[in-house]
């Protein structure tokens, strides 16, 4: 049949770019990194295969401590972003009037389009010893000398929440927007308290948005580079920094690849666990917008 031939042809033509993209830029490179991580360097141009690079990682406490530290700070950032972002999303989706809603939403989005670098730079100017906050504290008489507010964990967390909170708000707003206020009214009419209505109606309804926001936020936090390094300084101990150092400074690609695989496995495991625990799947959460 002629038309089915034509339809096959279009299918093939549409499939080709997808296949080229996903195979050449995603699948094969990931396999390449996996392969490289299993290659051990014995001498110049002499290699063996095995899990030696992974063993080295677990033998060196500084490496796995860095991964653990990256992990818990990222989880902390995700939780804070959810706590800070939820009321904002609720306000935009449920309380603000139609006209101001779009404007508020846009205001949330504008910092999103400014590079991480600019945002981190802004924080540096605010918080460093000669920065604005230090100057204001001295001017107000709250401090007798310059205060260094950079290079500590709290600053790193504040800066990272800043970078990712918008990615939490956007999916939350789009989910909450679809919730009918009648659901809330019904909850109250049936005698539910504020807390009960929130716990039994709002949270289950918003779950896809919460999960999507948490996944994106966590991935961005764990994979971030600029904010922890610029705000945390030399002792920030961030895992992506280790990867960069192995690749570029030490030129030890085998161990850099090992670190890359570990970071990817680790973040994927967290995402998978999050999806499992909440009964969601990747296509229905992340790709929803």
């Amino acid at each position: 049949m002629k038309s089915s031939d034509a339809s096959r042809l279009t299918l093939i033509l549409l499939f080709a770019p997808f296949a080229l993209w996903i195979i050449l830029l995603i699948i094969l490179p990931q396999i390449g990194v996996g392969w490289l991580s299993l290659r051990e360097k014995l001498g110049p141009r002499e290699y063996a295969f095995g899990f030696g690079n992974y063993l080295d990682f677990f033998r060196e406490p500084i490496y796995w401590n860095t991964l653990l530290r990256t992990a818990w700070i990222s989880v902390l950032v995700t939780i804070l972003a959810l706590l800070i972002g939820f009321p904002v999303a609720w306000y935009i989706a449920k309380i603000a009037r139609q006209r101001s809603r779009a404007a508020l939403f846009l205001m949330c989005l504008i910092p999103l389009w400014v590079s991480d670098l600019v945002r981190a730079f802004g924080w540096i100017l605010l918080l460093r010893e000669t920065g604005i906050v230090s100057g204001m504290l001295q001017w107000a008489g709250l401090s007798s000398g310059p205060v260094e507010l950079l290079y500590n964990d709290i600053t790193v967390v504040i800066g990272m929440v800043y970078t990712v909170v918008l990615f939490m708000i956007v999916p939350l707003v789009s989910t909450l927007d679809g919730m009918d206020n009648a659901l809330l009214e019904a909850g109250y009419n049936l005698g539910g308290s504020r807390m009960t209505v929130f716990r039994r109606i709002v949270i289950p309804y918003a779950m896809p948005g919460i999960v999507a926001g948490c996944i994106i936020t966590f991935m961005l936090a764990a994979g971030s580079y600029l904010t922890p390094i610029l705000l945390g300084g030399k002792n920030s101990m961030w895992f992506t920094e280790q990867i960069y150092e192995q690749f570029v400074t030490r030129y030890n690609w085998e161990s850099g690849a090992t670190f890359g695989v570990l970071l990817l496995v680790f973040t994927s495991a967290v995402v998978w666990l999050g999806l499992r625990l909440t009964g969601q799947n990747l296509a229905s959460t992340v790709a929803k917008e």
Binding site: F18, I22, L25, I26, L28, P29, Q30, G32, V33, L36, I215, I216, M219, A222, G223, Y225, T240, I243, Y244, F247, W253, G256, A257, G260, L263, L264, T267, S268, V271, L282, A283, V286, A287
Partner: peptide, 20 residues
């Protein structure tokens, strides 16, 4: 699979293409 690149950290996408 089409969505997966969004949840791979950017640093890893970078090193994988460098390595490959």
């Amino acid at each position: 699979l089409m969505i997966v690149p969004l949840v791979i950290p950017g640093v890893i996408l970078g090193i994988s293409i460098l390595v490959f």
